[in-house]
Design a protein around this nucleic acid. Structure first.
Length: 372
DNA sequence: CGCGGATTAGCAAACTATGT
DNA sequence: ACATAGTTTGCTAATCCGCG
């Protein structure tokens, strides 16, 4: 890694961390004087193609025409206004996303990193949906260095960015590997042996309703809870949403440890093991597994089930619906083996996620210190 | 109470009236 | 014709509510 000089002149117009060959002060410039802002446009009338269309949330679709070809930094006009992005090549931006071009005295990549530092929400002028206008953005003042230093910083941070990308890829690959292994294990292509290197007994096909007791999450209004973990509010409340679906914390719990939850709204059919005492929001189905069912095994095998949605209105799953699906149950010893094997992959993924978080912290630190 | 339909909330995108 | 900014739409997920 490149050697960096540490100077502590936080009040002056030089950064805290600097590449050794640079000493001169940075200049204050209005964004409007170093680049031109272009407006996004509707793309609906265009035909499908190979040119990416970007919205404030990122890539959307591909069309056959482009608004601009080259390096550009995009920033939201409405909605998400604090997530700038860097693009290079032919692209189209949606109505609500500005792009930039015709850079003067600045390297586009450098501008991108400066934009990541700007507190855009501060310039929000709308009462409802956050929004920025061209003139507001043009008036914002930022600090820039000479082209050579900009180039150095941009290249350096790009290296870190690509490392972060690699880390994301590692995590994706591990998830993929886990999925592949799960498919092989539950389709019996990959079999575990018992401690005497013998085959385990054949798996028994059971209805989901035969593996434990069922319940569904209750009325939140009857629960004493807070959004944050605070004092007596220690028991997590789980919802149907993405990831672990943490909703808040309650002062008392409804379900014991080691239950399996299945999402009945939203992420339909997604199962999780809840290792702590917890509460559940309406529509979250809770299974108390029988003593001969390993919760982790149950979770993973439920996640392989493809539930059909029967309701006509908002898609949902109910207890009677899911309980009639069949799953294959191994003996408890084999279940435990499978569960521990999958848990070891989970913990490997966790480790990689922690590394990713470290890298992101590092980038944050550098964004704060390599700039004025 | 458990279910399912209806409603609501929050967000991003798309539309549209108005000004230049 | 283009830029701007308020309004509407569409989507997902949470919440409400009446019925058996």
């Amino acid at each position: 890694m490149t050697k960096i000089n540490k100077e502590n002149k936080s009040m002056s117009k030089v950064p805290n961390l600097r590449f050794p060959q640079f000493t001169e002060e940075w200049n204050r410039e209005k964004i409007g004087s170093i680049l031109t802002i272009g407006s996004g446009k509707d793309y609906k009338h265009l035909s499908k193609g190979t040119i990416p269309v970007f919205g404030t949330g990122g890539y959307m679709t591909s069309v056959n025409e482009y608004l601009y070809d080259g390096e550009s930094v995009c920033i939201g006009r409405k909605g998400t206004i604090n997530k700038p992005s860097y693009v290079n090549g032919k692209f189209w931006t949606v109505d609500t996303l500005f792009f930039t071009h015709s850079f003067q005295k600045v390297v586009p990549k450098f501008v991108y990193y400066v934009f990541e530092k700007v507190n855009w929400l501060k310039y929000n002028e709308a009462s409802g949906v956050p929004s920025l206008s061209k003139s507001t953005i043009e008036q914002i003042e930022i600090n820039i260095s000479c082209i050579e230093e900009q180039q150095k910083i941009a290249t350096f941070l790009s290296l870190l960015d690509s490392r972060i990308q690699t880390q994301n890829k590692i995590i994706e690959e591990l998830k993929l590997l886990k999925n592949t292994l799960i498919k092989k294990i539950f389709s019996r292509q990959l079999k575990f042996k018992d401690s005497n290197r013998n085959d385990f007994p054949e798996w028994e096909v059971k209805k989901i309703k035969e593996v434990g007791k069922f319940s569904v999450g209750g009325d939140l209004n009857k629960l004493d809870y807070k959004k944050e973990k605070l004092g007596k509010y220690t028991y997590p409340i789980y919802a149907n949403g993405e990831g672990f679906g943490l909703y808040g914390y309650a002062s008392s719990f409804q379900y014991p440890e080691n239950c399996v939850t299945v999402s009945g709204r939203g992420n339909l059919g997604v199962a999780n093991v809840r290792y702590e005492k917890f509460c559940a929001i309406v529509r979250l189905i809770v299974i108390y597994p029988d003593f001969d069912i390993h919760p982790k095994y149950l979770q993973e095998i439920i996640n392989t089930v493809d539930f059909a949605i029967e309701s006509t209105g908002v898609p949902q799953l109910t207890v009677p619906q899911i309980s009639n699906y069949s799953i294959a149950i191994a003996c408890l010893e084999e279940q435990t083996k499978i569960a521990n094997f999958l848990l070891s992959i989970d913990s490997k993924i966790d480790t990689e996620i922690q590394i990713l978080q470290k890298l992101e912290e590092q980038k944050k630190y550098l964004l704060q210190n390599l700039f004025v």
